[in-house]
Design a protein around this nucleic acid. Sequence first.
DNA 1: CTGAAAGCGCTTACAG
DNA 2: CTGAAAGCGCTTACAG
Lengths: 349, 349
Amino acid sequence: MTPPVRTRARVTLADIASACDLSRATISLVLRGSPLVNAETRARVEAELKRQRYVYHRGAANLRRNVSSTVALVINDLSNPFFAEFAAGVDEALAAAGYVTLLGSTGESAERQQTVLASLLEHDPAGIILSPAEGSDGARLRGLLGVHTPTLVFNRELGADWDFLSLDNVRGARIATEHLLAQGHRRIAFFGGHQDSSSCHQRREGYREALIAAGVTPEPQWLVECAPTRLEAARQTGALFVRDPAPTAAVCYNDAVALGLMAGLATRGRRAGQDFALTGFDDIPEAAVSAPPLTTIAVDPRARGRQAAELILQRLRDPSATAATVVAPVQLQVRASSTTTQPQGGTTA
Amino acid sequence: MTPPVRTRARVTLADIASACDLSRATISLVLRGSPLVNAETRARVEAELKRQRYVYHRGAANLRRNVSSTVALVINDLSNPFFAEFAAGVDEALAAAGYVTLLGSTGESAERQQTVLASLLEHDPAGIILSPAEGSDGARLRGLLGVHTPTLVFNRELGADWDFLSLDNVRGARIATEHLLAQGHRRIAFFGGHQDSSSCHQRREGYREALIAAGVTPEPQWLVECAPTRLEAARQTGALFVRDPAPTAAVCYNDAVALGLMAGLATRGRRAGQDFALTGFDDIPEAAVSAPPLTTIAVDPRARGRQAAELILQRLRDPSATAATVVAPVQLQVRASSTTTQPQGGTTA
DNA sequence: CTGAAAGCGCTTACAG
DNA sequence: CTGAAAGCGCTTACAG
């Protein structure tokens, strides 16, 4: 932690006021577009503001008015395109509403998340949009944020006392599973994710519902856990094939896992979309260009970002409303990874 | 532009002071870790700070001290994984130095860039890291930023009077071209990018150098311009094959263009890496999983982000130093898109 | 229509 | 070791 650095010599209201032979109050009224000030005076002031390249100090104004024009955005992992798109959507909508985004990243560490939030809070954000790091503790976060900092949680559930923008995980996994069933598969695994994460739990629930509705009894060995990264998924691929008869298809926890599984299959001489069908979740840009292209659940993260921004802005207008969950729609995006192009062994077994 | 929103009732130094029967000055000394204050007093104050959940108002302190603890990061397109990684690296290094990142996105619009910068400037950033939108005008930006806002430009050249972190475009394109030459290609196109962009110009220069060093005379029809997006690249694919003999390989302006070209080739019944060789630039995550995987120039955008943050912090310490350009290293990453696995028609012609 | 005065939450010489 | 006072750049009733 280096000390912050001195800013440049600054043109202030006082400079403009003395140059125009007016008081600071009048200059302030001009800046804020008050109808009180004389048109000729206004013109003179505006010319002088331009001439001296005056830059409004919003922080000083906000301090005096006891308002804030920033919103903090805390992201677990910007290098995940899903969250990068989300962040782009948040920033777009906040900027349109006149707010500036304060960025923080946690790198999926709950510890770092506490530090980052503490630092952002000192900058007095009007609200916070938080995509929690894995293993976040709702009570601990509440201790830091208190009940007075409007916060919108995205993607990972933290408890009923938080405003929450959720993906429709249950439905997403259900339609992915239904799609695989419609392709003729009966032995369908659910691959990847951590059992204790709420989104994994919900996706497994949707998967289970679809199987049962189709008259298929889910086997415990079809549930394979692994960290939601490409690398871990590739490593865990073998776990799908330890018992006979092995699954012929898998609903993957997300796209990263699905891409890792594709790699793992290739290592074992199998080809996704030919002798094994799989689906992802998220529709990251890579999904469209992988080999084969990945059938997945599209979530439109940029639209989710805009939606998150709208929700926090709404909460700023009505801080006393009770916490609510909003469920965002999801959509099946069919590509080659799930549509077998050659006869596959075992779909009927 | 909605008006900003009232913040919550706030615990201030005055509240802590009166609860401890001390002056605000003493509380401030405790907060800033002054050795002057009595150990017992300090302990009492710290207990009270905790009890009342005091949150430091850094904006007020910065105003009084005339310092800033934020840096603005202006990105053309966060949904481009290259810039998302860059942003992650910037934020990581800024946070480690005790700064908070103010985020702005321009969506590649020079107009929007002016608006976004003007808004960010009102939040008094200590410095700015700017990845300029296409078509940015250095003089116009200088008019907005003046000579007193330390600014580091990334990726796109704006002129000699700006601090600039540049990728080694010339060398990157040169080694990509040398690699294709080493694979036996002689008719090598340079595909994509806009001629008037500095990075495109530099990459073409490296390409040209490599050809000439290998005794190949570059043909004008090997230079194909197109917007640096996947879609435009796919559309322009035909321009490579209008004359006989057509190129057998292409150095692409960047990975997006290369992936678009792959798609365009597929449409025409050609397979990248089999009957046409190509290279990209950037090494975005998709490059490793495309079909076939893309040979490209790795730039390590996250490391570039950290580097950009270090450079602006250094400039904050020494604001009067003259503007300088730093050239960041690049590296060839060989994958299947450039290594022909079947005999290709025409490498020897 | 314009100005004098007080105040947002903090820091910093200066006294004592 | 602690406090009184001034001030960072702005805004806002209140007078006139």
